[in-house]
Nucleic acid binder design. Structure first.
Length: 494
RNA sequence: GGCGCUAUCGUCUAGGGGUUAGGACGUGAGAUUCUCAAUCUUAAAACCCGGGUUCGAUUCCCGGUAGCGCUACCA
């Protein structure tokens, strides 16, 4: 059983807007049965972009009527994920678990107006029925046994304490049509829809009832959600009609698939948004990437778009009709773009997080120096992790030497000897600038009759432990004379 | 199984009755260099299949196929 007591102090019903404002109201309504996953994050993002684009209101609603599986940890996780993505909402979070009377009232109203009825069939009976039906190759549909019970009789039995669910009385004939903002006209035959449960026998509403009751109560104008709800929509439209309330506009967003084109799941790697933070993805990159999964701006030539641009460009008619595959390589590309474009001062706190996680204590506490170093290396970063990984030698004196790099550029003992000798020269040069260090090295190389490149590459490994790094002389200056000399002298031992 | 949705390079997509079918990521080659990244140049790479409609379909219509979704007293 979940416990949302930290929120129970206030369980406000949304205050009605003054009748003069008729703005767009959208919501993100996750179920806290898991962390914020990629698909949910994109739904949230689209709602946010749409709300901000039209100057509307975004409501956050936690759909925690599945008491078995909902937990407050998951709520926290979802909130954390949204905040990491920079998605802010205007009202809520509202918790369905705290609004149970609203749903009960809605169910009562539907029974009273003849659109719903009490069902005394037990879950076990239903399971048996379903099993039998599918064994016989029939589509399992509720046989409507209780629909035939006289309402007065049903009310009596209910009154007498007999457990009863409330089922919706689906019209026998005709069809239910709605105009989806993404897919256009969608039609379902009513015969294919069974009398679905609105209120379980324990009084807890099912999804269909709680969403509709809440969407009405919260006066939603648009329902932007995953296309997995497309087939649920006729049921909900019936509910709006039975409740005598106009339907909001539905906009269903195609799903996100894994590389094998099956629904994205743990099998495909990280599905939790926070896992991407942990992998060193910056939120702006993730947001940009997500926005372009299933949506394209009118001018599709520009892909690196900040939040202001995304908000400005976002529109429902740019939403794709078909599912999209999550392309990790493209995410990584966005990430490199954003890391490179990030001001280094802004990168510092993010990088410090990575150091903390890696147990790295920077060799200097001088923030300006750290920022300068970040500036030097960031264009080579693929993820924030690199700052504690392959760039470690720039920030700490304890780092590993990549054996492959040593093998590639330092396997010649003569080179290693020369680096030690070169170190002594650097000890005594008057200046220690990019120009002077380069001059010294090149003079030294021609003196020794070796290619400068050989010494440069060898020095790079000696200085950084890596075969990959920025321009060597910039590295030397960044490291400073002392470290440069010390590390070059150690080249012999590598 | 029934119902619904969808179908353009490997991926994200633009486009649309007559186009050299465009861009981006990724991949290959080259240039540059001090390694790598970047950058520049460049290459390969797509309209699911079959019928219609039409002078002409990748585009419109129908069917098939495939993928996904829904088909719960989950959401």
């Amino acid at each position: 059983m979940s416990d949302f007591s930290q929120n129970s102090s206030s369980n406000p019903s949304p205050t009605p807007l003054s009748s003069t404002t008729g703005g767009v109201r959208v919501r993100f309504a996750p179920s806290p049965t898991g962390y914020l996953h990629v698909g949910g994050a994109r739904t949230a993002l689209f709602n946010w972009l749409y709300a901000r684009h039209v100057g509307g209101t975004l409501i956050l609603r936690i759909e925690d009527t599945d008491f078995e599986r909902s937990t407050s940890e998951m709520v926290d996780g979802i909130l954390q994920g949204l905040s990491w993505l920079g998605i802010t909402w205007d009202e809520g979070p509202f918790y369905q678990s705290q609004r149970m009377d609203l749903y009960a009232r809605a169910a009562e109203k539907l029974v009273a107006n003849g659109h719903a009825y009490y069902c005394f069939c037990t879950k076990e009976q239903m399971d048996d029925y379903r099993a039998k039906a599918s064994n016989e190759g029939r589509t399992p549909m509720y046989p409507e046994t209780c629909r035939k019970i006289d309402p007065a009789e049903a009310a009596r039995r209910k009154q007498a304490g007999e457990p009863a669910a409330v089922r919706f009385k689906v019209p026998e004939h005709g069809s239910t049509v709605f105009d989806d903002a993404v897919f256009g006209k969608v039609e379902f035959q009513n015969e294919e829809i069974e009398d679905f449960v609105l209120l379980r026998s324990d009084g807890v509403p099912t999804y269909h009832l709680s969403v509709v009751a809440d969407d009405i109560d919260m006066r939603m104008t648009h329902i932007l959600r995953g296309a997995d709800h497309l087939s649920n929509t006729p049921k909900q439209k019936m509910l709006y009609e039975a409740l005598g309330v106009p339907c909001p506009i539905f906009a269903h967003v195609p799903l996100i698939l894994g590389p094998d084109k099956t629904r994205l799941s743990k099998r495909h790697g990280a599905t939790s948004v926070m896992a991407y933070r942990d992998e060193g993805i910056v939120p702006e990159a993730f947001r940009n990437f997500l926005a372009l999964l299933g949506w394209t701006p009118k001018d599709s030539s520009k892909e690196v778009l900040g939040d202001r641009e995304l908000i400005e460009l976002f529109s429902l008619d740019g939403i794709a009709h078909s599912n999209a595959v999550f392309d990790r390589a493209k995410l990584d590309w966005f990430n490199t773009e954003y890391i490179r474009a990030y001001p280094s001062e802004k990168l510092l706190p993010l990088v410090e997080e990575e150091w903390k996680k890696a147990g790295l204590v920077p060799g200097t506490a001088d923030a300006a120096q750290l920022v300068a170093t970040i500036e030097l290396v960031k264009s080579r970063a693929r993820s924030l992790k690199d700052f504690a990984g392959s760039f470690r030698a720039f920030f700490s004196d304890t780092y590993e030497n990549d054996p492959a790099a040593v093998e590639k550029f330092l396997k010649d003992p003569a080179v290693r000897e020369m680096l030690v000798e070169l170190a002594s020269r650097y000890e005594t040069t008057a200046e220690f600038t990019e120009q002077s260090t380069e001059q010294v090295l090149r003079d030294f190389a021609s003196e020794k009759g070796v290619k400068a490149g050989a010494l440069i590459n060898g020095s790079r490994v000696a200085l950084t432990g890596q075969a990959v790094a920025p321009s060597l002389f910039a590295v030397m200056v960044n490291l400073g004379r002392e470290r440069t000399v010390a590390r070059l002298k150690r080249a012999k031992e590598l």
